[in-house]
Design a protein around this nucleic acid. Structure first.
Lengths: 249, 249
DNA sequence: CGTGACGTTGAAGAAGGTCAACCAATGTGG
DNA sequence: CCACATTGGTTGACCTTCTTCAACGTCACG
């Protein structure tokens, strides 16, 4: 996974001309391998680069004052984990690799040059940030208004859909390394309870989370249990709905 | 409250030159009076204007499939309630007035013209969206990792601080109309439990929520109970920390 | 082949939800 | 100006969900 996949992602929601697309592909970066559970962006740190997840997964970690951790976002391969740092370089949350992860660090300077030269790129990046914001908003609903089983089912559906593995008639399994502790931090539950609820989902034949993969056994039932509706992810946007405010030259 | 207050808000975090400031102040708008509990932006609707809250308060409403409602953001006078609609005109959540509210509707066309002419304005607006996103992120921590008392205390501290009423040594009261049902929707609790917890806060002399005002009796204790730290609001940003990526001409 | 990280299970208790009733304030039509 | 309806606030009794604590199992890796 490289910059091309991020460009594809931008193009799935925004319209960019050839020059603009080339400007994205020409962005310089520095490859960084990060081990699991490592904070590669710390709270309060001022960063001069944005982090594109090339492989693995990244969690955005907040915590309350008793040290109880809360994951407020998960970024998968192809996602820009802290695009907002371009306009807000001081990190308000920490970024931690959930498993061994490859990061492409893209200097802010390069992004700023590109957006200054091509305002439509600024627009596309701003839009990308807003999609993340919409996901965050659903996250609030998830922890605020769903019980444990629905929370976990919803989270699994979201991850599967974002990995392109959602809504299959038959069961699927895809590689994804996540611990029960991380699921607990993402759903606002305790590890013990996550364990019990996962057992329930497994027993009922909805889904199984194993050490290195997630298996969705019955998408229909899982989506129903998690009250999942994928529109908020804005993943399958019809070409005519893709946007550009600025003229195409 | 008018456009000037929104400009002030932008200037508290971004650097804008005179022309850019004038462009903001010159934005056209249409005034709209909205009664409490009225959805003035509905889910799925495509809007062609952004809503600046001139007076009153607005909630961003999501809901799960059982109809349980969750407020994912509260916008106060001086806030732009759906700035993200400029780059994403299809509403992913509903906006509802929490009490009788005055909205200034600013046409997207005007905002787009302004940002196309002055890219630094696009930057400032993008940044403003990201501040809201940071608040949203804390909202996840609030509902995910704090008990009922802390959630309510935190919410009251946030509202007070955003109204410029935070961190006073003596007690203060400020006008703010919110029902216990709305507080329940914002904190992911039930009305009954909100009632009991508010009673506790009142009895312990921390704060009192009345029909038309909120009284903060003891800021110190309330902030402690809510684990409140206002940095995430980015309200008091030193002038030298205010940002501009683009050159100042 | 030990050691640490992760997963699993049981028992007990606390936080919060549910149901149901009642009260207080405001607003409206006759 | 009053009868009545409506909305919002308050309280008690009971029950469910989730947490806490504590122990033990299991897998991977040096």
């Amino acid at each position: 996974v490289s910059i091309q996949s991020y460009l594809n992602r931008l193009l799935s929601r925004s319209v960019l001309n050839d020059d603009e697309q080339r400007a994205i592909l020409a962005l310089p970066y520095q490859r960084l391998e990060v081990r699991g559970n490592y904070d590669f962006v710390r709270l309060g740190e001022t960063v001069d680069h944005a982090c594109l997840v090339a492989d693995g997964a990244v969690g955005r970690f907040d915590q309350n004052m008793n040290g109880a951790r809360q994951i407020t976002a998960i970024h998968l391969a192809g996602d820009m984990a802290d695009l907002q740092s371009v306009v807000q370089p001081k990190a308000t949350t920490a970024l931690q690799a959930l498993s061994p992860t490859t990061i492409l660090r893209i200097p802010h300077v390069a992004l700023r040059e590109a957006t200054a030269r091509f305002p439509a790129l600024a627009e596309a990046l701003w839009r990308d940030c807003m999609v993340d914001s919409g996901i965050l908003s659903q996250w609030v609903v998830n922890v605020g208004r769903r019980d444990a089983r629905a929370r976990l089912a919803h989270l699994l559906c979201e991850i599967a859909t974002r990995r392109g593995m959602g809504a299959r008639p038959a069961g699927v399994a895809f590689p994804f390394a996540v611990t029960q502790a991380q699921l607990a931090d993402a759903t606002g539950l305790t590890i013990v309870h996550v364990n019990r609820v996962l057992k329930g989902l497994r027993m009922d034949g909805l889904a199984a989370v194993r050490r290195h993969e997630i298996e969705i056994s019955d998408w229909e039932k899982l989506a129903e249990a998690g009250e999942f509706d994928d529109t908020y992810l804005q993943i399958t946007m019809a070409p005519e709905d893709r946007l550009r405010i600025l003229p195409l030259d």
